[in-house]
């Protein structure tokens, strides 16, 4: 696989090749080169299958990490291609022309993280939420609990126990004292 890592490094400046398992590796490329890298991997590298595409909110570094999971069925090898895009005003090249299903993932990322994919079909339509008027809810600075408390009525009387302490008290009452 190092041959592939070298090729990617030379062509697209890919870095941080990491062999997770025998059949799974990950690599990091620059966000501006993500579409070219994926196209080359699909056409030349044999990674013909896009398993999924998703994003991770790395709020500490101020970036979204996009992850494209590709699969080479001939070699039985999966490759996770990562790319980082800034959290303010994120915009990424669309891959819907490389893989037909790509626009669904991009629509999902647009709704959940607010990452824009210009030119992707129906990218501005609602995906799973209906009538969502807050900030994209998978961003980590969205406070789910505060929103839930403000929006949905709570039934009084709900208590939370620490599982370890609670079971200790229930099962061994004398030890808890």
């Amino acid at each position: 696989m190092n041959e592939l890592a070298e090729k990617l490094a030379v062509r697209y400046g890919a870095r941080d090749w990491h062999d997770q398992r025998k059949d799974l590796a990950s690599v990091m490329v620059d966000i501006l080169k993500i579409r070219d890298t994926l196209a080359w991997l699909r056409d030349e590298g044999g990674y013909v299958h896009l398993s999924f595409a998703t994003a991770i909110d790395n709020i500490e570094r101020g970036v979204f990490t996009l992850t494209y999971a590709l699969r080479n069925h001939e070699r039985g090898h999966s490759l996770m291609v990562h790319a980082e895009v800034s959290r303010d005003n994120p915009s990424v090249d669309s891959i819907h022309l490389l893989w037909g299903q790509g626009w669904t993932y991009q629509r999902e990322m647009k709704e959940w993280y607010g990452i824009d994919f210009p030119g992707s079909p129906r990218v501005d339509e609602e995906f799973v939420l209906e009538g969502w008027d807050q900030m994209p809810m998978m961003r980590r600075d969205f406070d789910s609990l505060a929103y839930s408390d403000a929006t949905y009525t709570e039934r009084p009387g709900r208590v939370t126990h620490d599982p370890a302490a609670h079971m200790k008290e229930k099962l061994y009452p004398e030890a808890a004292k």
């Binding site: 789910s144 949905y152 009525t153 709570e154 039934r155």
Partner: peptide, 8 residues
């Protein structure tokens, strides 16, 4: 604490 699930 879900943003999209009603409680009652």
């Amino acid at each position: 604490d879900s943003y999209n699930t009603i409680k009652r």
